[in-house]
Nucleic acid binder design. Structure first.
Lengths: 216, 216, 216, 216
DNA sequence: TATGAATGAGTGTTCATTCAT
DNA sequence: TATGAATGAACACTCATTCAT
């Protein structure tokens, strides 16, 4: 009831997200996270096992929240029935979600680029199988409308020419504006045009292929 | 001509590139680079100012080499005159170059994602102005054929829907194959299709727009 | 009568004894003792002043129990009147008591070896003056039968050639069996022979000296 | 040639020996060892892998030195041919060596009392097989003169009724004097008497058994 | 050029102990 | 009595960097 009296655990996570995003995981210091959360350093180890488990908790929450968002989005009839509008909607939704979670996504991309570990966490952005039920996935990707033998192609295309460009746009836009001396609005407009000409072209091609495959 | 001597500096750089690629910049240790180069740790500081300047030198060489490659490519008449074939050629050339320099590009992307510092080094992949002469740039991007008021759009599109997808493909392909259980060949084929349907569509659109703009 | 209640203090002490014995005092952690006792960590500080006072309480109880054992042993006429048999009896009694309290004795010896603090607690093993009444001491050590001017010698001899070897035997027997590849029974037999040939020889000598001193 | 310009490595080891002996291994702090050696803390890690490897090096040197001492002692005709005198000589030699190495022996006994690890290092005090050649061992223990089937008994007796009492005497003498209010000389005299009456009795018994076994 | 030795400033983590309730 | 949360002071160990030769 007292939203000000936020849990210290939450404050720690929020601080970690901020510091990790600013400096990268490796260069982030527990001391700084503690200071930023206004908390004793040892308290971090009261709530979390290690520096890395802070990161894991952030990722865990992100994917949990993403899944919840997708489900609620679908259930509340958010999706238009016209395929092209549907794609637009999904695009916009993703876009604002990416903007909102920019800091965490930055960390996630960096961690995904480390060769050593497990699967890059970023793959989960297009692979929700263990996060969301079958029906939702079907509804979102509308996979019934796509040539069924092209599931893998779909995944590859969505990831490398849809998610990745959007993600990198979100992560690099500020630097880009400064470096190339454009306004955010201009850049956004360019990026939208580029996506229309590329990724949307792909969606159109997919639909065409489909209607050619099973006409009438 | 005495390859054994005089090349401690090179051995250090080679070792740095290897260790950086294996562990990422932050997690790499000067000790390990020295050991890997078969050289005393202090010698690294004789040749280089700091750990970071090792990275800078690697980046510097990379861009220098890229530029040289571009120039020689253009000069030796490598580029076909048909626009669509030309694009294909550039695509393939970039592709194999990215594959070859994958390790360094991985580090470069990670460093580019850090918010603190200067301009992301990765922007240089589409901004050769201070690396290559005007004529070469013109020749490569054939910018004369593009609507002149769309230079910025061109840059945005090339970067976010061309370079970035290709780069991420090169960096993530191994993990993708393992995670989604596809062969490298299959994945490559999917990726090529996706790029054809997206980035190439953009190039086509650009040419169409151009011929519409200045017909006859 | 409600054994479930009221005994958190006991549970803590029991857990402390176990953990201390397993890891030694220094390496034992209050957290682990609390967990092992099924009790909140702070409760330990409700019942005890500090980690060290846990140890002190364990030592205190040990000596109290030892004293009680000695007294009851003497009072119930446990001791034979023949000196040599009496010595045997005491030897065996000590032996099994040491075996039983092995873990605590190990800690006590370690603490006794620290140079910094007070008197080594282990000295109390031969100095019961403030634990047991005079009569019992007299009865046990039969000091009336020993040359009165040799009280200190008696103490030294009992401690360094009686108590200490027995204690170390109890503490090292398992490791010895493994290291020298002997069975426990064999080792025990050797040790008994060795003690017969040494410590018992001393007791015999003492008695001889006594009968020579005050014959008839 | 400049004995003052002692190696920092040696200074570190000397300091470690001192601090370990004063506080025990666990309670000793690397910072304090560094300060005591007049050396930067990081230098300790330049010469040694870890805190524990400091201890290992100290033990290694001790046993190496012990072995060298034994060998030189035997080779320089130090040992009398009369068995009883020989035993006395060995006793005295051990005694002064133990006094000299008291600090390290204290640490070694404490470490030997830890149940977790390998074999107690203290066992090496009676098991020189891998430190010294066969001939020296034979000469020292005169094992040819002892009943050959009692080798294990001999080891047990020497360790628990010879080495251990002497060691504990050396480690506890100061505390004993303070606690029981005796002078060092008095205590030493008592201890010598006690050892004569016990351990020496054992040696005598052994010789008697031998002469009975193989007379003439 | 080259190196063995040396160091200041951290670095994540631990732990006995205390506090508020 | 009992507990979840909180903390100060370490602690072993690391690492980029420098120095003397």
């Amino acid at each position: 009831m007292i939203p000000e009296k936020e849990n210290n655990r939450e404050r720690i996570l929020k601080a970690a997200e901020k510091i990790f995003a600013e400096k990268g995981y490796d260069a982030s210091r527990i001391d700084e996270i503690a200071a930023n959360a206004g908390v004793n350093k040892a308290l971090i180890y009261y709530y979390f096992q290690s520096k890395y488990s802070l990161l894991e908790e952030l990722f865990r929450r992100f994917f949990q929240e993403s899944a919840a968002m997708l489900v609620s989005y679908v259930q509340h009839g958010g999706l238009d029935s016209t395929p092209s509008k549907k794609a637009d909607q999904i695009f916009d939704t993703y876009f604002s979600y990416f903007e909102e979670k920019r800091d965490l996504l930055r960390i996630m991309l960096v961690e995904s680029l480390k060769t050593g570990g497990d699967a890059p966490p970023i793959f989960k952005l297009v692979d929700f199988e263990d996060l969301v039920d079958e029906a939702t996935i079907t509804s979102i990707f509308d996979s019934g409308h796509y040539p069924s033998n092209n599931m893998d192609l779909r995944l590859v295309a969505e990831f490398f020419t849809g998610v990745i460009p959007m993600l990198c746009y979100v992560l690099f836009q500020d630097h880009w504006c400064r470096y190339f001396n454009v306004s955010r609005e201009q850049l956004r407009s360019y990026f939208n045009q580029a996506m229309k000409l590329t990724h949307e072209a792909y969606h159109r091609a997919m639909r065409d292929q489909l209607s050619g495959e099973s006409p009438r």
